[in-house]
């Protein structure tokens, strides 16, 4: 099959053509230079979707919840794009991505697009290319874009810096009463979900969370009252309430200039991240040249890492993008 240039994919993406969306996502994820002008164009066209991050520790029932949530959202007619993230192996770089299994029937719904992504070395619970993927799905007309994070239970803050609404999922009986606190993700939640509420120890988890919230630990959310939504897949409960809470939060953001504020934060973060990436890109590409020499000096302790890095950066000209 002939190679289709990314810019030629853009009109098809804007029409929501699945194959074109899929291919552009692949190139964005690969960090392909060829697709940058296309992604620039996509960025200009994006900005309509409600972006929702869903995070929680392994075993909290995140994937099951996402499947049920999406099914419920589809009842309202909105189209949903999902990016489900799993970790890449730090050793081989490979990954097994199994989130589609949980999606069940919704994966066959033409109003739903599911994409599995491996972190490919990215930290913070997102994958490389996740932010561009959000743009692509947004521009393709998905009214809601859901990011399901890796959920390793630590350092999931990136998702809050990339989404409008962050949902943190906890489950009762996962060892710690409130894993969220330990994991440091309580503060990032706009909405808390306690899954598996058919279990007897769920009430305590809900109560503990509410208690924490009343102590004002989540003041960063301004006047938004962070709700705690109990759900149960076994009893098929709580999902309608979650959809309502997500919609309520979207309405809340759109009052006044809150949404603009949130978008500003997201864009600021993206700007910095993109800058870091360009620098690191240059840095890494020079590894086999000057890096090796500098490393030897580090090994001999004649140079400190900080000074070595400064020297390396002197030779980098971020302007000449490859």
């Amino acid at each position: 099959m002939a190679f289709v240039h990314s810019l030629n994919l853009v009109p098809r993406v804007l029409k929501g053509e699945v194959n074109a969306v899929a291919r552009l996502l692949t190139r964005a994820e690969a960090g392909s230079h060829e697709c940058r002008p296309a992604l620039d164009e996509i960025f200009r066209r994006a900005g309509r979707a409600h972006i929702i991050g869903i995070t929680g520790v392994p075993g909290s029932g995140k994937s099951t919840l996402v499947a049920r949530l999406v099914a419920a959202i589809r009842q309202t007619g909105r189209r949903v794009g999902i990016v489900a993230i799993d970790p890449s192996s730090p050793f081989s770089g490979g990954a097994i991505l199994g989130d589609r299994i949980r999606m069940g029937a919704i994966a066959a719904d033409p109003g739903v697009y599911v994409r599995s992504m491996a972190t490919r070395g990215a930290l913070g619970g997102l994958a490389r290319g996740t932010l561009e993927a959000i743009d692509v799905l947004d521009a393709a007309g998905y009214e809601m874009v859901i990011i399901e994070t890796v959920g390793v239970g630590q350092d999931e803050v990136e998702v809050a810096r990339a989404t409008h609404t962050t949902v943190v999922v906890s489950a009762p009986g996962l060892g710690d009463d409130i894993q969220a606190i330990k994991a440091g993700i309580l503060e990032i939640a706009d909405i808390h979900v306690v899954s598996k509420c058919d279990r007897s120890d769920a009430d305590k988890t809900v109560a503990d969370l509410k208690n924490m919230l009343s102590m004002g630990l989540a003041s960063a959310r301004g006047s938004w009252q962070v709700p705690v939504v109990p759900t149960s897949a076994a009893r098929d409960e709580g999902v309608a309430e979650l959809v309502a809470a997500i919609d309520r939060h979207w309405t809340f953001l759109r009052e006044g200039n809150r949404l603009e504020e949130r978008r500003r934060l997201i864009n600021e973060r993206r700007l910095l991240k993109a800058g870091e990436e360009i620098l690191r890109d240059q840095f890494v590409r020079q590894r086999n040249g000057q890096v090796l020499k500098l490393l030897e000096q580090l090994q001999a302790r004649t140079l400190s890492p900080r000074t070595a890095a400064e020297r390396l950066l002197q030779d980098i000209h971020p302007g000449d993008a490859p």
Binding site: A30, P90, G93, R120, G121, R128, V291, L292
Partner: peptide
């Protein structure tokens, strides 16, 4: 002296994200 005649030891990819184009 691990830097002798070989390149860098295989980086754990979580430490050095591959930002150049990666065909997986």
């Amino acid at each position: 002296g691990a830097l002798g005649d070989r390149a860098l030891p295989p980086a754990r990819k979580e430490n050095i994200p591959m930002t150049t184009e990666s065909k997986v």
